[in-house]
Simulated assay, not measured.
Amino acid sequence: MDTKRWSVDKNVDNLTGYPQITQAADLLLNNEVVAFPTETVYGLGANALNDQAVAKIFEAKGRPADNPLIIHIADEEVVSDFVEEIPEKAKQLMKAYWPGPLTIILKMKEGVLSEKATVGLSTVGIRMPDHPVALALLQSTNLPIAAPSANSSGRPSPTTAEHVWDDLHGKISGIVDGGPTGVGLESTVLDCTEEVPVILRPGGITAQQIEEVIGEITVDPALLDSGQKPKSPGMKYRHYAPDAALVLVKGEREDIQRLILEKQQEGLKVGVLTTEENESFYQADKVIACGSRENLESVAGSLYDTLRNFNSADLDLILSEMFPDEGVGQAIMNRLVKAAGYRVISL
């Protein structure tokens, strides 16, 4: 398959009439699959009303068939077309954080959206992305677009069009290149079908920000304990993983350096995921600083690119420092724990 690629300047005031957007929208209207930027990561979009279109997403990514897709929209008014009701708390969150990196799960109307997108569930996750290219594409199609991250299943999510190209060229119809994404981690997923809403995936909107708007929420226990059955089907799969084995390490940097030397003496090539504060301290085969501990948003924005960069070093093992499990740090740790397959060493 020939994968078309268009470059679009996201700073243009009105993109809806641009030929690149029109060409990409035409592919979506013809039930093809197109990757596009959002403020979180690049998404792999298809017509959420058509089973054949949605099936192409699963085929291109190699995505498990029981892992539901988030539906992207450009206008809050259309939410009622797809769901039975919009609880007051959900309305408050839409007003506060849409467009933005928040996916809200609601009870779905039957027979409207593709069953392949919702994998037979009675609920659906919907969000409005905060990116001019994504919104222009959605407006141009006037369709709900099902869109997971535009990467091969299990690999780090893409934050540049080049990441998408590396994983999916020849497998999808097009890539809209709108430059690097901003947040760098996927949206927060909040189940609003419960009386007390539940975070199923931490992301760009923190638990504290949600509580400021609607009060009490809870967190799915499976986020904290790998032995718990996850509420969302997709949470049971390993995600975001680099090629080499990734292990999270609790301990002081001196202890981590000793572990590096031990593993090197065993004949392993070792990489270290750290931050700017400790980059010059470690002696390893590959050391990459992922943002600054003084600014966890910078860590979030760099995380997937950092995980992908380790793949060029032919490593056997990557040791990662831990991060505070609060604010956006909760989302960072969620992604690292999943990428490591829950492997954590305490020194």
Rank of each mutant, 00 (worst) to 15 (best):
D75E: 07
E294C: 05
L268H: 07
V112Y: 13
Q209T: 04
K171N: 13
E297N: 12
F281R: 04
G100D: 01
P197S: 13
I105R: 01
E85H: 11
E212R: 13
K231S: 12
P101V: 03
S157V: 11
K263T: 08
A60T: 04
E326G: 07
N11V: 07
K116S: 09
K286H: 10
P37Y: 00
P156G: 06
D191T: 10
T275F: 02
A339C: 11
P156V: 12
K109Y: 02
D130Y: 03
S122K: 05
G327V: 07
E294S: 15
K89T: 10
L347P: 14
G125Y: 03
K116H: 07
D285M: 06
E326A: 14
I217H: 04
A136N: 02
V78A: 14
E252Q: 08
Q283Y: 12
A117I: 06
F310K: 11
K4N: 14
L49C: 14
T22E: 15
G179I: 03
L200A: 09
A96W: 00
Q265H: 15
K56W: 08
E59T: 13
Q20C: 12
G251W: 12
Y237L: 13
M128P: 01
L44S: 00
R127I: 02
F82D: 02
G329C: 03
V78Y: 04
D316I: 06
M1F: 08
D66H: 08
V8A: 09
A207I: 15
A331D: 06
L44A: 02
F323N: 05
T181I: 03
Y18A: 09
I105K: 04
Q52A: 11
L28Y: 06
L347T: 13
D191G: 08
G267E: 10
Y342T: 09
A46I: 00
L273F: 03
G182A: 14
G234F: 04
N67E: 06
I172S: 05
D81P: 13
L273Q: 03
V337K: 13
L44F: 00
G100I: 01
K338C: 15
S292V: 05
D9W: 04
A245G: 11
D13P: 10
N30R: 10
P144R: 00
N14G: 04
Q257E: 02
G43W: 01
V164D: 04
E266G: 11
G62V: 09
L121R: 02
P99D: 00
A222P: 14
N334W: 07
G271N: 03
E32P: 14
P233Y: 08
M1R: 12
A331S: 08
H239P: 12
H131I: 01
V213F: 05
L224C: 15
G227R: 12
S320I: 13
V189T: 10
P64L: 05
Q209R: 06
L248R: 02
L190R: 06
G100R: 00
N67F: 14
A161N: 11
P156S: 06
E76P: 02
N30F: 10
E32T: 10
V164E: 03
V176F: 03
D167R: 10
E252D: 04
E216T: 13
N47P: 00
L248A: 06
T306E: 11
G215Q: 09
Y42S: 01
L137R: 03
D325G: 14
